[in-house]
Amino acid sequence: MTLLIDLVLLAMLALTALRIIFLKDLFAVVMLFGIYSFLSALIFVNLDAVDVAFTEAAVGAGISTVLMLGTLALTGRNERECERSSLLPLLVVCVTGAVLIYGTLDMPPFGHADNPVHEHVAPRYIQDSPQEVGLPNMVTSVLASYRGFDTLGETVVVFSALIGVLALLGVRREDNSLTPESGLKSHLVLHVVAKLIIPMIILFALYVQFHGDFGPGGGFQAGVIAAAAFILYALVFGLPSAFSVVSPKFLQVMASLGVLLYASVGLYSMAKGGQFLDYNKLAANPIDGQHYGIIIIELGVGITVFAVMLSIFYAFSSQVARLNIR
């Protein structure tokens, strides 16, 4: 049964990818990218990787779609015709693809019990993490504790994405009187429903943030979900009122504070006599120390991801607003 579901999902994934290649309408392409992300999330669920599926659904299908739509509003909806011959690019793509396929020939067979991944690291985590870290959700143990340094790197990557976007675009605060009348102003149903569900989304984000130790979730997903709540607010009530709720300046401070919070946990554990990000030293009992450390660094990740996603959305949509005024 699982195999059948996998086959159907993979076939749909391949069809979506092919359709994306041949479509010229970029709006439809963005929508198909969302579908692609949801399909891969379903495949991850089928592989029992719920944390990854959650991230894929929240980031891939949720936030990226919104950000790509924001980009489309700036650049235009249709793909430009390419005048040059496409033979050389085709050749490059074919050769690269062939090399990649040749590379997969050496990979161990899929799902085989003797694969290297099942022999060294995974059994170690599965056997020892309940004693060493003591979290029911082992994915969080691996992500936040064993691989805490990698996760710090990922958080910094997210943060530097924000720096890049702000350096290129910047968030512009326009005079409120200049902002054109949005069609949504008269949209009573959307206003009521948005007011109803935004608190629920934020509550869910907090649940995902602090329940990540026990179930699927964590800082990345929670940050994205919380950002989605504010993006919904900005879309329905207009960018100026969103700016007055959460100002871009505040978000920039938050984004750097999250990374700082994460890194300072590492420095604090060094001050306590451990290594960088050695949570065992955070409390008298090593297990308690692990729990404190993981909760704090997940909070840092959540704050940074939330602030970065919302800032990038602000940057894009304030440019769109400026374009509309012209």
């Binding site: 069609g183 949209h187 149903v189 959307l190 429903v193 109803l196 569900i197």
Partner: peptide
């Protein structure tokens, strides 16, 4: 709550 709203917003826009 959400899906009728989405359909409504789509048709209205």
């Amino acid at each position: 709550i959400t899906s009728p709203t989405a359909s409504h917003a789509l048709a209205k826009s």
